[in-house]
Nucleic acid binder design. Structure first.
Length: 416
RNA sequence: GUGGGCGUAGCUCAGCUGGUAGAGCACUCGGUUGUGGUCCGAGAUGUCGCGGGUUCGAGCCCCGUCGCUCACCCCA
């Protein structure tokens, strides 16, 4: 073959047939519940002014401090490939005055995100997310609805083996008070230097440590949940009761840590059982200070980001995606030039009626064309030759059973 | 950024203590006239990741390099 083959950049996820169909299916499953809840699409650039993320996501987060693809454009501006979606949506909402009309502003997006990390199972440098944001309303009912939308997406895919972790991070005052006590608690632990450095950046991180000795040590650490203000507690209690009413099961996880600084109040994460180390298939929460931090009004919002790549991995691990759901309805095998013309015509009419039709072009032997039809997984096959054209009638063969029936070309649509 | 595993046909891999490469799947054609999935036959495909070294001789040994992969960190 050729000389030097050029490969895809390190750590990117690519989807080629046949798996790309499954990817598309998962993506649509995750978007649809948002559409049905009245969320509207928003298409944003994949690169933004770097400052959007340093300010919005938080300088101290790993995402900003070491995982961003940042470069200078030709005008000397610092540009960053978006590492997450919420900050960009807030920027656009402020810039286009979407916060001036009726609230909440409800938006969904789907697309690629970028993080310069070491790749791993379920972790890519370019990955895909579906996200929604509901801006300008702090009713606990919308918190529950946002969670229900995410859950409906995973259910639509057919996923079962996942759980929902739920907590409340409270307001700024609650967090400040808790942080003082937590830092004091950590100070009296016997920790190695690296761990201490991590704790200095974000003490909550220690709750997430995978080492058993650290987990044990953190068992007696003060929990943020115990520092919540009355209003935060009430809000959270309502979120839980709405979820109960919806029959959405959740696990209270007061030790949950989120990687982005802007989260406040209700915070959640969907975790799949069958995935490897990167088992979070989606997460989100409320963000009270983000809009104003980015120069907008003091509006609260809530949203989520769901990992399409990981949801697909989870679906494959559960074996819930069946490939025949992507197959064509009918496969037409034309014999001869006139038949090709006729096949084109029949196909375009049936396609206009919503059917998926493939035609075997290329003058292959009938046997080969039949094989092609078989491989494609198409439900039905017809052979179109001179006889069929003169009689206006075809043998409609159902591939799964092998049975055939005589059908007029005009009534093919009804027979499919 | 740190550690482990692995790089052989399109794919999954085999290749024993070094003797210049194989299987299965997939693909193409055929097993007489226009109907697939099974079976049988035939065929095509590799600078064994790349570079250097040891050796009469290396896919197998040594060094380097690149890539992939899993895990840590962190997260979707």
């Amino acid at each position: 073959m050729a000389k030097q083959k050029i490969q895809a950049p390190k750590g990117v996820s690519e989807y080629v047939p046949p798996r790309s169909s499954a990817f598309e299916f998962v993506r649509e499953c995750l978007i649809n519940p948002a559409r049905k809840a009245g969320y509207l699409p928003i298409e944003l650039p994949v690169f933004e002014d770097t400052e959007l993320f340093t300010r919005g996501v938080g300088e101290s987060t790993d995402v900003v401090s070491k995982e961003m693809y940042t470069f200078e454009d030709r005008g000397g501006r610092s540009i960053t490939l978006r590492p997450e979606g919420t900050a960009g949506v807030m920027r656009a909402v402020i810039e286009h005055g979407l916060d001036r009309g009726q609230l909440p502003s409800k938006l969904w997006y789907a697309g690629a995100f970028f993080r310069a990390e070491r790749p791993q199972a379920g972790r890519y440098r370019q990955f895909y997310q579906v996200g929604i944001e509901a801006i300008g309303l702090d009713d606990p009912a919308i918190d529950a609805e946002v969670i229900a939308i995410a859950d409906a997406g995973f259910k639509a895919i057919g996923l079962n083996k996942y759980r929902l972790d739920l907590t409340s991070l409270g307001d700024a005052h609650s967090r400040a008070a808790h942080r003082i006590d937590l830092v004091a608690f950590i100070a009296q632990l016997d920790l190695d230097e690296a761990t201490r450095a991590r704790a200095a950046i974000n003490p909550l991180r220690l709750f997430d440590d995978k080492r058993p000795e650290i987990r044990d040590a953190m068992n007696n650490a003060p929990l943020l949940m115990d520092y919540l203000s009355d209003s935060s507690k009430q809000h959270f209690a309502k979120v839980k009761s709405y979820l109960d009413a919806l029959g959405i099961a959740y696990t209270l996880n007061p030790k949950m840590v989120r990687g982005l600084d802007y989260y406040t109040g209700t915070t959640f994460e969907f975790v799949h059982e069958l995935l490897g180390a990167q088992s979070g298939i989606g997460g989100g929460g409320r963000y009270d200070g983000l809009m104003s931090e980015l120069g907008g009004q003091e509006l609260s919002g809530i949203g989520f980001g769901l990992g399409i790549d990981r949801a697909l991995l989870a679906a494959e691990a559960e074996g819930v995606i069946t490939s025949d759901s992507f197959a064509s309805d009918l496969f037409i095998i034309p014999l001869g030039d006139l038949a090709k013309e006729k096949a084109l015509l029949i196909a375009s009419e049936l396609r206009a009626a919503g059917k998926t039709i493939e035609i075997a072009f290329g003058d292959r032997a009938l046997k080969g064309a039949m094989k092609g039809a078989d491989k494609s997984g198409a439900r039905f096959v017809i052979v179109l030759g001179d006889t069929e054209i003169t009689t206006q009638s075809v043998e409609l063969k159902e591939m799964k059973t092998g049975s055939t029936s005589s059908v007029k070309i005009d009534s093919l649509l009804g027979a499919l």
